[in-house]
Design a protein around this nucleic acid. Structure first.
Lengths: 185, 185
DNA sequence: TTAACCATGTAAAAAGTTACATGATTGT
DNA sequence: ACAATCATGTAACTTTTTACATGGTTAA
């Protein structure tokens, strides 16, 4: 299991960052399953430094609080590579809509139509946000063509998952409509 | 956010179950994002009973420990329906492979090919398990045709997600192979 | 003047996992 | 003899979220 700290190590290998900058990365990148709240980021950085996987430069600023800019150490790079070569599990999905649909028996046909439609709109909105980010993502700083391609594919992964969800929803709707015509029970 | 307790409420509305039976459901159904360990199940049941959403019948057995079979109350049914009508978020995905791929810059081309292939096999294996469960799932006890259809679609959702992952992986592989031919950097 | 951004951290609570604890039955 | 199934529960730990705490800058 890839841990939060290992992901932070990856970012710091990409370029030195402050806790604040990491936080904003966690809130803008879809493939990161963590919220990136203060407690996660700042305590992780302190711990990573304590065990010698990262180091920091403190930069005094005139008017703003001092920045602590972290970068990886040799030990950090070694640890990161180890983590990257571990086997990955199949994707784990948390889908609240499926949990609700499972008990659709408790709902009327029109209530089911209602929650399907509400969910479809939600997924479509999410897909739009995702596509918008893909467009803007072109501006990011990549170290190579391969890295740029890979990050494009990370974004594409999320888009494909959401598109699949919409296709599945369309199937669900037509299947339910068909069953309704053919008679209930 | 659909909670574990609400899902338990859903199962007990379907039919009265013991903690042990709930546990085995949690470990066999793919769309449930919880492990269904003892602590989750038994403390949830005790809490649900305490607040009056479920009740139990204790059944003495000759040779085995007593079963506590839980069923929903009227308040439980009301609470469940409330939860079902709440809006659902877009699916949240935890994909460790994406987290590793993000830092592929740290790996050689052949190491990347290695982790892609390992992951592909993992996803294919998961898809097989999933398809096998779909076949067996036909035997389950459903309260209506609609319920049988919906549960089939729950299973189909997971299959489609895994198929999409395999398609995406194929794209990734060919894209990386193409980039390699065109020259590095 | 109000919101967003910059910038750091800590405390408390909730959610989730692993391990501990007990013990009989049934099939290989 | 060993593993799997049946059946319940608790303790300790890890992970994650939410809220608290501080305080200056910048743009609408």
């Amino acid at each position: 299991m890839m841990e939060l700290k290992q992901v932070i190590l990856g970012f710091l290998e990409w370029k030195p960052l402050t806790g604040y900058e990491l936080k904003s990365l966690f809130s803008t990148l879809d493939f990161l399953p963590w919220s990136g709240n203060n407690n996660q980021i700042y305590t992780s950085l302190i711990e990573l430094e304590r065990v010698g996987l990262v180091e920091k430069r403190t930069i005094q600023q005139e008017k703003l609080p001092a920045q602590k800019r972290y970068h990886t150490t040799e030990a950090g790079r070694t640890r990161l590579k180890e983590a990257l070569l571990q086997p990955s599990e199949a994707p784990a999905i948390r889908n609240d809509f499926l949990l609700r649909l499972a008990w659709a028996q408790c709902l009327s046909a029109s209530e089911i139509e209602g929650i399907i439609d509400e969910y479809r709109l939600r997924v479509e909105a999410e897909l739009s946000i995702c596509q918008e980010r893909t467009r803007r993502g072109q501006a990011a700083q990549y170290r190579s063509k391969r890295e740029a391609y890979v990050w494009g594919m990370l974004q594409r992964n999320r888009e494909m998952v959401l598109e699949t969800e919409l296709n599945w929803l369309a199937q669900l709707r037509s299947g339910l409509a068909k069953g309704k015509k053919e008679g209930k029970q």
